[in-house]
């Protein structure tokens, strides 16, 4: 996938288009990160972290450890645990990646929760160009929002008082409702079981572990034989879930 071939591809362009409203919503999350991170990392630190880490939950988690007086080792450990879900997600994505291993590893850097889930096409396949296209505006929004929060956070006041802590989970709820959860029995069971596993582990495991452990619930999808074609009954499997959760106009 040469760069020009990528940027001219209709899947990539559709990803860019679908990514803009998602990125705008993501800006609200990034602003809350900037507000929370500035007293801990400084303005430059908050913005640089968003630019070179670009992983929301790991950034929130590690900054929370530092803010609570924890040392860098504890903060780094929390961040790594919160990122470990990218291992099974990356294994799932890998067969859809083309090119040499180095190029595949670079393309996998575009994997964020939202674009990864929205690029799923059933039968274990992903539209990688669509995923990369979605991630581009999200990356720009993530850095801009962090900068806005870090510079202007004091004007906003307490992020919890204006409900910013509800933004991140609401964002993922929208994505969850774009999947088969609530539509097919298996997906609903997988989501329900994952939620219960995570809930049960919150009091006993460090941050990140409940999310990794909840991945076990996906084993509900194990099939002895792969069906000839995806059996979810969708006629148009090219239609993206993210395309459906788009603000009109």
């Amino acid at each position: 996938m040469r760069l020009r071939a990528l940027t001219d591809h209709p899947s990539f362009r559709r990803g860019l288009r679908d990514g803009v409203p998602v990125a705008i919503a993501g800006v609200a999350v990034a602003v809350s990160f900037g507000v929370l991170a500035r007293p801990v990392l400084g303005t430059a630190g908050a913005i640089v972290m968003s630019a070179i880490v670009f992983a929301g939950s790991a950034q929130f988690g590690s900054v929370a450890v530092l803010a609570a007086g924890g040392g860098p080792l504890a903060a780094i450990a929390a961040g790594i645990l919160l990122n470990l879900r990218y291992v099974p997600m990356g294994v799932a994505l890998a067969p859809s990646l083309r090119g040499g291993l180095g190029l595949q590893a670079i393309k996998a850097q575009a994997m964020v929760d939202y674009s990864w889930a929205a690029a799923m096409r059933g039968g274990g396949r992903f539209d990688v160009r669509y995923m990369v296209g979605l991630t581009v505006p999200m990356y720009i929004g993530w850095i801009s929002g962090t900068a806005a929060g870090a510079f202007a956070g004091e004007l906003l006041g307490d992020p919890e008082a204006i409900g910013l802590d509800a933004v991140f989970p609401a964002f993922f709820l929208a994505l969850l409702m774009g999947t088969d959860a609530g539509r097919t029995l298996k997906a609903t069971l997988a989501a329900g079981a994952a939620g219960l596993i995570a809930l049960a582990l919150i009091p006993v495991a460090p941050p990140g572990v409940p999310i990794i452990a909840a991945c076990i619930a996906a084993l509900i999808g194990f099939e002895r034989r792969r069906p000839e074609r995806p059996t979810d009954g969708r006629l148009d499997e090219v239609e993206a879930p993210a395309a459906a959760i788009r603000e009109p106009g």
């Binding site: 274990g124 993922f172 994505l175 999947t179 079981a193």
Partner: peptide, 20 residues
């Protein structure tokens, strides 16, 4: 056989993220 597991990974990861 893992294709179905991969398809279920999305709903599972997203629900866990929301809960946590």
């Amino acid at each position: 056989q893992l294709a179905g597991v991969i398809d279920m990974l999305g709903p599972a990861v997203l629900t866990a993220l929301i809960v946590v």
